[in-house]
């Protein structure tokens, strides 16, 4: 019974991977592949946000700023010093991590809505710096001419080729997030989210883990930013507005906070949003309505619905087994 279900799971996974690999071929044009690529980047940011908010309960609304930091680091190092993607990536990760510590520090002092506004504020400050330090960032004009990455002579110079780079990044990002959240780091994060006081009493260095969670989220967004810079080859400050943070927040919550798969599912929202384009201005109105409906009726997001369904299934099985054991005829007493 058990081996059969694992067999099915493996088959489903293989089929899913095959589908992912075939996606650029299925897509009808470059534009659709671009949307897939952007979906991948949003999933990366969402994974980071999920670790900080979903697991550790630390609201980080500076995600757009981290994305910007990653993108600008990559753009500046690539255009000024000709650093290739493989060097701009680790450099941007280090810088996002350092800024993550700065944004994370207030979490030692303030929580919940206070932390929300503090991270919004710090994110704004970062964006303001990028817009105003024109000598370095060229301000609103942006930075053009960022090179596409290449590996052993193979250049990711089309949307289709870049797709596989993004795909690898997302899979790696997901697996690493899983490694972090499944073991002791994840438990410390969840302990802090569940009960801050008790976590401390059990020897959890709460401050360290809170900052770590925000740093991780920042690095994820930073990596997405690097990927974006090298994909788009041009960046300007207006693509990193607060709105992008809100969008990642919604997709994570609609997918399911505190569950990494939720971030993957949330990616569908990016595609859905594109599909809603046909409704023009009404698109975002529907989007707002949908968000409110999700919050009111499916607060756990899609993963929450899946979980509830599984639990119901489990209790049904358990009660059926119990009845069998007791030899009772089925009755209506079980909920």
């Amino acid at each position: 019974m058990k081996t059969r279900s694992t067999l099915w799971k493996t088959l489903a996974l293989v089929a899913f991977l095959a589908l992912l690999l075939a996606m650029p071929k299925i897509a009808r044009n470059d534009y659709q592949v671009r949307i897939l690529n952007m979906t991948g980047l949003y999933i990366l940011i969402s994974l980071g946000l999920n670790i900080a908010m979903g697991y550790c309960g630390q609201i980080n609304l500076a995600m757009g700023a981290f994305w910007a930091v990653g993108a600008y680091t990559a753009a500046l190092l690539n255009t000024n010093f000709k650093w290739p993607f493989w060097l701009t990536l680790p450099a941007a990760m280090v810088i996002s991590a350092i800024i993550g510590v700065v944004v994370g520090l207030p979490s030692l002092k303030v929580r919940s809505h206070y932390l929300a506004i503090v991270t919004i504020g710090l994110g704004e400050v970062i964006n303001i710096i990028l817009v105003n330090e024109e000598k370095i960032t060229r301000g609103a004009m942006g930075i053009p001419g960022i090179k596409r990455p290449s590996l052993f002579g193979f250049t990711f110079n089309s949307e289709q080729k870049y797709y596989y780079l993004v795909l690898v990044a997302v899979i790696l990002g997901y697996l690493i997030a899983r490694q972090i959240t499944r073991h002791r780091f994840g438990r410390a994060f969840r302990a802090i989210r569940d009960d801050y006081v008790a976590a401390k009493a059990m020897g959890v260095n709460t401050g360290f883990y809170q900052i770590l969670a925000i740093v991780i989220s920042g690095v994820y967004a930073g990596v997405a930013g690097v990927l974006f810079a090298h994909l788009n080859t041009y960046i300007s400050p207006d693509i990193f507005e607060f709105r992008s943070t809100l969008f990642v927040l919604t997709m994570t919550m609609v997918g399911g906070m505190g569950n990494l798969l939720g971030s993957l599912v949330g990616g569908i929202l990016v595609i859905l949003q594109e599909a809603l384009r046909t409704f023009k201005d009404w698109q975002l109105v529907f989007y707002g309505v949908a968000v409110v409906l999700v919050v009111l009726f499916f607060p756990g997001g899609v993963m929450g619905i899946a979980q509830r369904w599984r639990e119901r299934q489990a209790t049904r099985l358990a009660s059926a087994a119990e009845k069998e054991e007791a030899g009772n005829p089925p009755s209506g007493e079980v909920r």
């Binding site: 929300a116 201005d281 009404w282 707002g288 968000v291």
Partner: peptide
């Protein structure tokens, strides 16, 4: 009555709705 993150998202949702109705 919801916890902060849901409240945050729910009210942001209402905000998005109002903003875009205004645009229309």
């Amino acid at each position: 009555n919801l916890d902060l993150m849901l409240m945050l998202l729910g009210t942001i949702g209402v905000g998005i709705m109002l903003d875009n109705l205004a645009i229309i």
